[in-house]
């Protein structure tokens, strides 16, 4: 009996040139300069960061540009203890949702310069940027967030952003 064909390999590779879009382009240009540019919904006034060009709740385009602070509040977080392929950080480390002052959606980042067990909801943090000459069109321009030294934010101030 001849051997059964159990698998074949057919390599596929296609290259795309993706357009981020008008709103994300403004955001990416801003972050290269160390600025965080969100957009405000004309109907519900929520500020999206990063902006997608539309308010997903109101279904209207967002046009008004809003510069958002690089300081914010940890709304929720997790401690990563599991090693995985491609891991950059040394474990254990903290991955947190941070709602930046002036924004209505939390963004994700790593929290450092604080013991893992001391990270908490309401912790006030500050972005640590890579050197200006190393910045590109990428969120990696923010290396991590560190405690800003301010008093913890009261729960009421961020409960809507959980």
């Amino acid at each position: 009996m001849s051997e059964a064909v159990k698998k074949i390999v057919t390599p596929i590779s296609i290259e795309y040139t993706i357009t981020p879009g008008a709103a994300p382009t403004k955001f990416l240009r801003g972050i290269k300069e160390g600025r965080l540019l969100g957009q405000r919904c004309p109907k519900c006034s929520k500020v999206y960061l990063p902006p997608r060009g539309s308010c997903t709740v109101c279904a209207v385009p967002t046009v008004e540009e809003v510069e958002v602070s690089d300081q914010g509040t940890v709304t929720t977080f997790c401690v990563v203890n599991i090693p995985f392929y491609g891991q950059v950080q040394e474990i254990p480390y903290v991955c947190a949702a941070v709602v930046l002052d002036g924004a209505d959606l939390p963004c994700f980042g790593v929290v450092q310069e604080i013991a893992v067990e001391e990270v908490r909801m309401g912790l006030r943090v500050q972005a640590v940027w890579v050197a200006p000459e190393e910045r590109g069109y990428t969120l990696e321009n923010i290396k991590y967030f560190k405690p800003s030294g301010q008093a913890d934010a009261p729960f009421e101030s961020y409960r809507e952003h959980l």
């Binding site: 993706i18 357009t19 008008a22 994300p24 060009g53 385009p61």
Partner: peptide, 16 residues
């Protein structure tokens, strides 16, 4: 070739 807007930005005004 639409070089500025992404798919969602093209679609949104059409649906509206």
């Amino acid at each position: 070739r639409e070089q500025i807007h992404n798919e969602v930005e093209i679609l949104m005004p059409v649906v509206a």
